[in-house]
Design a binder for these strands. Sequence first.
DNA 1: TATTGTTATACTCTATAACTATA
DNA 2: TATAGTTATAGAGTATAACAATA
Lengths: 183, 183
Amino acid sequence: MTDHASAADTGHVQPLEPRQLEAYFVLLEAVSLLQHAVEQHLRAEGDISYVQFQLLARLFHAPGPLTMTQLADGVVYSRSGLTYQAGLLEKAGLITRGPCPDDERATRVTLTDAGRDLFHHVLPGHVRLSRRLLFDPLSDDDVDHLGDIMTRVRDHMRAQPPRSAAPRKRRTATPALPAEAAT
Amino acid sequence: MTDHASAADTGHVQPLEPRQLEAYFVLLEAVSLLQHAVEQHLRAEGDISYVQFQLLARLFHAPGPLTMTQLADGVVYSRSGLTYQAGLLEKAGLITRGPCPDDERATRVTLTDAGRDLFHHVLPGHVRLSRRLLFDPLSDDDVDHLGDIMTRVRDHMRAQPPRSAAPRKRRTATPALPAEAAT
DNA sequence: TATTGTTATACTCTATAACTATA
DNA sequence: TATAGTTATAGAGTATAACAATA
């Protein structure tokens, strides 16, 4: 029974409480449904993705222009991904990129009038949709509690060390099998 | 002021309560972070995506084989997407596809031993990760409430009529602009 | 006719690595 | 050396439409 597996230590892990498991899966499922609906709406109404909407929203709510890095924050997980999205938004005339006076390395991203307009154009439907899908079945208390819970979770996750969690890379077509040798 | 916009009726929409807005954004942000971490773990540990993990999980928890349609349920939003994923899983030896005795049109999907093994191989780390990221900062009450809330939301969304929500398709590179004429 | 599933195809998005330039 | 950003490129994933076969 001392099968200390190679990388993952497939040893004894307390299984999740049934309620935890349920909460976990239903959370991801519900958000997935919500995301999908939101994506469809944004695409139909403004021809943007949710990521792009987030970027516009960040610029909209910021006091002024942002650098690429500031813009990326919780939205995109790779530098090149952001450059790609910013390229699309710029090509569409929704943002502008220029040099940053403070730091010559940085790029200053500015929301254009068209970007602001598009945001305003898309927002009401977005609000309606989120209300219809997410808030209709919830009480005010639920909303408060949900916001509180997810804020704590987010802050907790942000505080976590990166933990690259990847012992090694697999490139084979065959998925990693659970060490038959350990039997 | 009677600018009844074309499709979206950009008229007066009660803005969301600040708390609602915050709950909405923080929900999506936190889940996005969680998803990203989970995806990375699954890829590193078992070379599968979260979608593929969900498919394996559905098969694992089902009493027996499932048809493609049953398998797709909340996981994938297009038929071809499922065929694609099933193709990958089959190529990796994790599932098997065969004719369905009940309905000659359907495909019977079966989890192989290797699929079961991979699921078991990946699960402990998955549980550890979800615990570390999601459950650590939450009390038992929080978890109960979260599960309850998201269950209601999910059921509500599933009960919603499809509402194709897309007045028309846009294919232009230029995003839909908010009717400058209406100014 | 409606449903189940597959295929072909086009497209979006993401990530890695190599690169440039500034701090 | 470290940070900010871009580029090239490759790969994963998704969706639409056309299709075949069965109910």
